[in-house]
Measured scan of single mutants.
Amino acid sequence: SFQYVPVQLQGGAPWGFTLKGGLEHCEPLTVSKIEDGGKAALSQKMRTGDELVNINGTPLYGSRQEALILIKGSFRILKLIVRRRN
């Protein structure tokens, strides 16, 4: 089963996490790295392996390109929903 975790990061880029996968690579869009001391790490809500399913209220369909555009369009606040295996 899965758990959906809301994450809100503040203060602008860099957000402190790296993505891998996506439709382009025929795999889920997941968090591959969280930078020590970065905003994602400080939130204590994101983990490597989390799947990104929503950015700023926009549902994602797995495209890494789409996710990067939405993330780049976030100035002060980035709201994410990640899906994690229980």
Rank of each mutant, 00 (worst) to 15 (best):
A67M: 01
I81F: 06
L52P: 08
I34M: 11
D50N: 06
S74T: 12
P14Y: 03
G21T: 00
I71Y: 04
C26P: 05
G16E: 04
N56W: 04
R83H: 00
L19G: 03
T58K: 12
L42I: 09
H25S: 14
R47K: 12
N54C: 14
Q10N: 14
N86E: 12
L80H: 04
L68W: 08
K72A: 12
L60S: 01
G12P: 09
L42F: 09
K45G: 10
L70Y: 09
S1K: 14
P28R: 04
H25D: 15
G49I: 03
R47G: 07
I34T: 03
G22Y: 04
N56V: 06
W15T: 00
L60A: 06
G22Q: 00
I77P: 04
R83E: 04
L78P: 04
F17C: 06
V82C: 08
S63L: 07
H25P: 07
I34E: 01
R84K: 09
P6Y: 13
S43R: 03
N86F: 12
R76W: 05
V5I: 15
Q10L: 13
E66K: 12
I55G: 02
G22M: 05
G11N: 04
K20L: 08
L23E: 11
S1A: 07
P28I: 08
Q3H: 14
G37L: 07
E27M: 13
G49H: 07
N56G: 06
V7Y: 01
S74V: 05
W15G: 06
G57L: 06
N86H: 12
L70M: 12
Q3R: 09
P14D: 01
M46D: 02
G11F: 02
L29C: 05
Q44R: 11
G38S: 10
D50Y: 02
G11R: 06
I34Y: 03
N86C: 11
I55L: 03
E27V: 12
G21H: 00
T30K: 08
F17K: 00
I71L: 13
L19C: 03
G22C: 04
A13K: 12
R85D: 11
T48N: 13
R76K: 15
P14M: 00
Q3N: 11
Q65K: 12
E27C: 09
N56E: 03
V31N: 04
I81C: 07
Q8D: 11
I34D: 02
Y4V: 06
Q44L: 12
Q44K: 12
I69H: 14
L80C: 07
Y4E: 06
G12M: 02
S1R: 13
T48L: 13
E24A: 06
H25N: 14
G37D: 09
Q10S: 14
L19P: 07
M46P: 07
K45A: 11
A13R: 08
S43T: 10
P14W: 04
K39S: 07
P59A: 11
G37I: 02
T18C: 14
K72D: 12
V31P: 05
T30Y: 11
Y4C: 04
L23D: 15
L60H: 00
T58I: 09
L42E: 12
I55M: 00
P6T: 15
P6L: 11
G62R: 02
E66G: 08
E24Y: 06
K20A: 13
A41E: 11
T48E: 15
A67L: 02
G73D: 13
P28L: 06
I55K: 04
Q8Y: 15
P6Q: 15
A41I: 03
T30R: 09
Q8W: 09
K45H: 11
R83K: 13
I71H: 06
L60M: 08
G16I: 05
L52V: 14
T18L: 09
N86W: 14
E66A: 11
Q65H: 11
F75R: 15
Y61C: 15
R84T: 05
E51R: 03
L80P: 01
R83C: 07
S43A: 09
R64M: 15
P6V: 14
K20M: 10
T58L: 09
S1P: 08
N86Q: 15
R64N: 08
G57E: 08
G38F: 02
L60C: 10
R84V: 01
T30P: 03
G11C: 06
I55R: 01
F17R: 03
E27Y: 05
C26L: 10
G62C: 01
N86L: 10
K33W: 11
Q44P: 01
S63H: 09
K45Q: 10
G73R: 14
L52N: 01
P59W: 09
G22K: 03
L9S: 06
P59N: 15
A67D: 05
L42M: 11
L78S: 04
F75T: 15
L70T: 05
V7H: 08
A41R: 07
G62Y: 00
E24V: 06
Q8A: 07
E35L: 12
S43Q: 06
G38K: 03
V31W: 01
Y61L: 15
V5D: 02
S74P: 09
E51I: 04
C26T: 10
H25W: 11
R85F: 07
R85Q: 11
F75H: 14
Q8R: 09
G21F: 05
R64Q: 15
G57K: 03
D50W: 04
G11H: 03
G22F: 03
T58A: 10
I71S: 04
K39F: 05
Q8L: 13
R85K: 13
L70S: 06
N86K: 15
Q10M: 14
E66H: 12
S32E: 14
Q65S: 13
D36F: 09
G73H: 14
T48K: 11
R64T: 08
I81Y: 03
E51W: 03
D50T: 03
G49D: 09
N86D: 10
E24Q: 08
L29W: 02
V82Q: 00
T18Y: 10
Q8T: 13
I55T: 01
G62M: 00
L80T: 02
G73Q: 13
F2P: 05
D50Q: 05
V5N: 01
S1L: 12
K33V: 11
N56I: 01
K72G: 12
K79E: 14
L70R: 11
A41K: 08
I69F: 14
R83G: 03
S63G: 09
E66S: 09
A13Q: 09
G62T: 04
V82W: 06
D36T: 11
T48V: 15
G11V: 00
N56R: 01
G12S: 05
I77T: 15
G12H: 07
M46K: 01
R85Y: 09
I69Y: 13
G57N: 11
A67S: 05
G11Y: 01
L80E: 00
L9F: 01
V7Q: 02
L68A: 13
G49A: 05
K33C: 12
K45W: 03
G21R: 00
A40M: 01
H25Q: 14
D50G: 03
Y4Q: 08
Q8C: 13
T30C: 10
G16F: 01
L23Q: 15
R83I: 05
R76E: 13
M46Q: 04
S1F: 08
T30I: 11
T18E: 13
V7M: 15
S1I: 15
L70H: 12
D36S: 12
I71V: 07
Y61G: 15
